[in-house]
Computed example of a mutant assay.
Amino acid sequence: MKAGKEQITSLQITFMVTIFEIGSAPLFLLGSHARQDAWLATAVGSAAGLPLLFLFFWIQSRAPGKDWTGQLKLGFGPYIGTILGAVYALYFAYESMRNVRDLGELTKLSLLPGTPMFLTMLIFIWTGGYAVWKGVAVVFRLPEMLLPVTLFMYAVVIAIFFLLKVPDYNRLTPVMENGFWPILQVALPDLVSFPFGQTVIFLMFWSFWEKKGIPIKQTLIGYLTVSLFLIFVNSVILAVLSAPIAAASEFPMLKAVHSLSSLRFVERLEILLSILLYVGLFVKMTMFFLCSVQAMAHITKKNGQVLDDPGRLADIWRFFY
């Protein structure tokens, strides 16, 4: 991270919220325990995540110029706040490594089955580490390039499903067969915590906004875009595979795309989907990694200039790995 106060634009915030929340979510059937009502569970989880997001807005409004670690120190005092900040730094590091594991498994499953998984995971870690080294402003430029391409390619894949008349929306019936309570049980707290509750990381970045105040409108646009996208993707997965098959699959979206492999002109389409998932997983891994490094830099009272010194950067790498 570079010296001085970095800044991010409104568009970068909207794009980052969108691509971060998409992440690896299309890879799975969110709310699979709700069976054919999984898309409804996703909608409920999204709606339940909105009050949590407004809570984050309120927290940020208490100290607009501080990130989450600074707010913890302000609210709980320097000692307890530092301990809580360290806990969050470990949480961010843990979530980052979970995404690294997903990247490794996805690579082994779809692209490089003969390559040792630790090697591909190490490459992803070092690539993400380089992005973190360049700083917040550079990381937030990534979605400006990646999100339009990602959404376009998802649209192409889904359009192929509909052009070939593969989805059968009768597989989503009966709606609420067992009432609303099972849907609510699935949505709360699982879907609130993943993916919608992970917007907590933006408490680390809203203070970098180039304008005064909090980017509420920009964040909400990204959040609502992702919510509609995930609800739609879940319904497509269910309509293509049916609830029992989708729930039993490790990666339902890949299985749905693989079902098109018998058609010659769309053969190996799952590789395209894998690349799209790589983009989401890489952004998510990098963002969590950046949060963890930034939190530890504040806790140890080292500002962003520490990452410009290769010798001191090596010390940070040894702390995490």
Rank of each mutant, 00 (worst) to 15 (best):
V157F: 06
G23T: 09
K211Q: 10
L224R: 03
L112K: 04
P182G: 04
K2V: 12
G45L: 03
M121G: 06
S292N: 04
G280C: 05
V166Y: 12
I275N: 04
M121S: 15
L50I: 13
V166C: 12
F232P: 00
G129E: 04
G31N: 01
P174T: 12
K165S: 11
G222C: 00
R141L: 06
L53Y: 06
M287V: 12
L224G: 01
E105Q: 14
G179M: 03
L241A: 12
R312Y: 12
S207N: 14
W68V: 07
T219H: 03
F194G: 03
L260M: 13
R171A: 10
L74T: 07
L272F: 13
Q7P: 02
L142C: 11
Y154S: 06
Q36W: 04
I59S: 02
V226N: 00
L220A: 06
W58L: 13
L276V: 08
G65P: 06
A159T: 10
W317P: 02
F124C: 11
S193C: 09
G70F: 07
R318N: 14
F251G: 01
G77F: 09
Y154M: 14
G45K: 03
Y130T: 08
E270G: 02
T225L: 14
L122Q: 05
L103P: 01
F202K: 01
Y154T: 07
K5S: 14
L55H: 07
L53C: 06
M16Q: 00
G4A: 08
L263V: 14
L119Q: 08
A38K: 03
W317I: 12
A34T: 07
I13T: 05
C291T: 05
G70C: 06
G197M: 07
E6C: 04
G65C: 09
I22A: 02
V283I: 15
F28Y: 15
A43N: 05
I245M: 13
L238R: 04
C291H: 00
M296P: 01
T18S: 14
S274A: 15
I271M: 09
Q198C: 02
S259V: 10
S235L: 15
L40K: 04
I275S: 11
V132D: 02
S61P: 00
P167K: 14
L191F: 08
A256K: 00
T9N: 05
L164D: 11
L163M: 11
L203Y: 05
K165Y: 11
T42V: 15
L307D: 02
S46K: 01
L172R: 05
G222Y: 03
A47D: 05
K5C: 09
D190K: 10
L52E: 07
D102K: 03
M16Y: 05
M204P: 00
L260S: 06
T14L: 09
V279T: 07
L119Y: 10
V139A: 01
G4S: 08
E267F: 11
G114C: 09
V200H: 02
L27R: 04
V44D: 03
S292H: 02
K2G: 11
R318M: 15
M176N: 01
